[in-house]
């Protein structure tokens, strides 16, 4: 892969740091009037998801990370791998539990997910911002309740547990924001 110098660091550029692909978030130039120039860089480690700040000497270069994002449809899991398909080429890719991580509770068949590949292997699975899932279990709510009283826990088909308003019942489909894990609305029929 090509080398990337600190002067090419900008949002979205991917480099290898300590053996792990990282995404550059911010890059600030720091230079004393007399002396060495530095770049103070905010980056996100793609595998662990950790955000960190690192300082480099200006002009230092790093190996580019062979990282790309693909939009793929979720098909099914065989218990060990989660299978996704490219809707245009019908090519299938399998992600392991490390790549799927916490996203497992938001995977809905046929939903389009972002799969981040490093050297061709899936390392991160990002679900859509909103998913619709059916409630499999929740306590019957009190009559006359409107939204905003704190709600009650509801278990969804994937096993995810979200807080829903008291009027929402078992068997209904709800829309959930996967970034916050919060109930958004009842699904449109």
């Amino acid at each position: 892969m090509a080398n990337i110098s600190t002067n090419e660091f900008k949002g979205g550029v991917k480099i290898m740091l300590d053996g792990e692909p990282c995404n550059i978030l911010e890059n600030e130039y720091v230079k004393p009037g007399k002396g060495q120039a530095f770049n103070r860089v905010k980056l996100k480690k793609l595998i662990s998801g950790k955000t960190l700040e690192k300082t480099f000497k200006s002009g230092e270069s790093f190996e580019a990370a062979d990282v790309m994002d693909m939009e793929l449809s979720y098909l099914y899991t065989d218990g060990e791998f989660w299978h996704f398909m490219n809707n245009e080429s019908f090519e299938q890719i399998a992600a392991d539990d490390k790549a799927v991580g916490d996203s497992v509770k938001w995977l809905v068949e046929n939903d389009s997910c972002t799969i981040t590949l490093w050297n061709g292997t899936p390392i991160v699975v990002t679900p859509p911002n909103f998913v619709e899932l059916e409630i499999t279990e929740t306590d019957p709510g009190l009559k006359g309740d409107t939204a905003g009283t704190g709600g009650k826990p509801a278990t969804l088909t994937t096993g995810a547990v979200v807080r829903v308003p008291l009027f929402v019942q078992t068997g209904e489909v709800v829309k959930v924001d996967t970034r916050s894990g919060e109930y958004a609305s009842r699904a449109q029929k």
Partner: peptide
């Protein structure tokens, strides 16, 4: 030494 001193001083 000066590179490290400049790093520590500025940061």
């Amino acid at each position: 030494k000066d590179t490290i001193l400049q790093l520590l001083f500025s940061h």
